[in-house]
Nucleic acid binder design. Sequence first.
DNA 1: ATAGGGTTAG
Length: 878
Amino acid sequence: MRSPETIGPLLTRYAASKSLLPGAHIHASLLKSGLLATFCNHLISFYSKCRLPGSARRVFDEIPDPCHVSWSSLVTAYSNNALPRDALGTFRAMRARGVRCNEFALPVVLKCAPDAGLGAQVHAVAVATGLNGDIFVANALVAMYGGFGHVDEARKVFDEAGSQRNAVSWNGLMSAYVKNDRCSEAVEVFGEMVWSGLRPNEFGFSCVVNACTGSRDLEDGKKVHAMAVRTGYDRDAFTANALVDMYSKLGDIHMAAVVFGKVPETDVVSWNAFISGCVLHGHDQHALELLLQMKSSGLVPNVFTLSSILKACAGAGAFDLGRQIHGFMIKACADSDGYVGVGLVDMYGRHGLLDDARKVFNWWIPRKDLLFWNALISGCSHEGCHGEALSLFCRMRTECFEVNRTTLAAVLKSTANLEAISDTRQVHALSEKIGFLSDPHVVNGLIDSYWKCNCLHYANRVFEEHSSDNIIAFTSMITALSQRGQGEDAMKLFMEMLRKGLEPDPFVLSSLLNACASLSAYEQGKQVHAHLIKRQFMSDVFAGNALVYTYAKCGSIEDADLAFSGLPEKGVVSWSAMIGGLAQHGHGKRALEVFRGMVDERIAPNHITMTSVLCACNHAGLVDEAKRYFNSMKEMFGIDRTEEHYACMIDLLGRAGKLDDAMDLVNSMPFEANGAVWGALLAASRVHRDPELGKLAAEKLFILEPEKSGTHVLLANTYASAGMWDEVAKVRKLMKDNNVKKEPAMSWVELKDKVHTFIVSDKSHPRARDIYAKLEELGDLMTKAGYVPNADVDLHDVDRGEKELLLSHHSERLAVAFALISTPAGAPIRVKKNLRICRDCHVAFKFISKIVSREIIIRDVNRFHHFSDGACSCGDYW
DNA sequence: ATAGGGTTAG
């Protein structure tokens, strides 16, 4: 037996190193020698630290008359071993017995308080016993109030602590603000602490970094980072991880990578922080690469990692990996974590695998909370099962009771697509009732839904109520306007937003780029690009993709290419945008090369990519390649053929003159042929002079799309191309009888900040005189160069000379002439047109491009034509 | 050298 005075320190040492066996041995010998009561407090503490609160309790029960230290040690044993109810019960028993409450018991009891009410009762005990003056107790009170959302109470306790305040007090107060979404105040508290002369420790640094993250304040964050480097606290594991989290959450992926590389001991949390930031900002592919690196560094991903990675899988189309994670989870029984389940429902939902999503949803009994419902409802909205989304929403209201902004936003997407005005109004009323009308996402959903339901009045009202300080409301309106072709109004609204002092973010700029794309506003697109650079948004994946798309739509495939090469990360959307752009510009071979590059990079194509690929084959006349892709896409990429793929294929076969093959495909496809299919066949029948097929297609179109005037014109042209003039006359009479009007052909050209609109024989433009003079001048030069007008197929009921004059006054010619007299020599000219370019203008622009030595780029409804030096990029195949 | 308070990833 050891000498009694060494026993206490020994037990303390065993407790610190959790050496259970030697400690238990001492316990036994104390029992034997009858000295237990002397060292009972050491023993209770020892068992508590060894995570054996039951043994601590048995020691306590052996003591005939436990003192206040024994009592508070037992309370601590329960509290520190996650038994809050036992801790509280023991505390009550101790109070009931009249045992003195000391300053050690209160903090651990406060940690166990289930709500602020009980916490306040403990606070009252502290005041009654005068223990509230103890700084440990005060700090614990600050933490308790902070944790239950009573920040102002926490502040009061903090203030009352006066000169006793220490670093823990400051950190606790900061944490209280951070936990209650008052991050900028937390940053201020940090400033006060520094000002008061107290040097922040590692807790303070990690806490203030989180505050900067929460208040999205990168400027302050960088200052704190610099300060941490100066004081060496950037080497602290928590602070380093918090810095990684800050940079990656705030979108500075580059700095996140730098800081991540300097984390002294990279752990799962560091990886998770970095990976989740990547996913948050759309760098899905990067996130997946990080997972591999993480695994090869020997760390095991946990549920945090997996739920981030599932999002990345959903975004990047890395669907096999998603399935592997699902399998891994079933095996590892990691299903208790709801986040991963939600990630699975979300991933399957976004992949169009609604059955799998439903299965996971129905199988995940343990925690079917709000998030699960949201994931499934979002999946349904996403996949177009809008009716199911609505009925799930109703079921949810009875089974789950809770609804949040994600739910509302998802269900509004469905009411929008169903154009269900009364449902939209009901969701609007519910949002108002439960206080979500201040939420930007809900406002966004409402505006969008009212737009789609054609209720401009309500959309405007919601917008005006929230427009003053809400950038998301502006973004919704700008998106809605640009999607409805009101690009100019979208630009105006953006200017208004700037005037109101709202800082543009990547979302609104991406939306604005779409407006530029729809307007073919190249110059304005470049300005938005400049905004993106100036505000350091170039690492934003969405904005980057929008740039590719916009430059392509504005006729500059070179700029699109540059934007594409500069993307920080290329996802399926980026590749598809580039392939689609190349396809529209007639660079079929290059589009296919890019597609092969995409496959080499192991980016899984989706159905949109495949449409672009087929479209590329179409514009370049690559029939065999198209057939190969069309026939093997299911097998190679797991993509089912959609109506669009069939329409594209039928168009391609028709254009190539394989009308029989095209009809075979129409008859064998699993869809009812739609307007796009018959339209393609009608166009093909005109080019390849098959009036019989033209008649059939036109008859279908008269039923399917009676509102479209183009059908009559194309049919008449088909007859005209086959020399069937009687039939031409019949169609013309039919048009007159049915009062069908040709959709007016229009062209647009951008000059500086303004888009100029022209219609045929337009005289309304302020510079009309100069424009017509230019056309006349060009006409002479063209005739000298060998140009012969081709007026055979024009439907206007006028004599030949007049027809030729009309041709030379087509809207695209006016637009080109206007650009010629308004822009410097040699500058390329970009014109957008609402119909297909006419044959005669196509010939004329070839001549003009050579005469004036300019590149003329025409975007028609179908594709781009680049005229340069007497030739067109389409090779006259269109 | 008997007990207590504040920090990280979805």
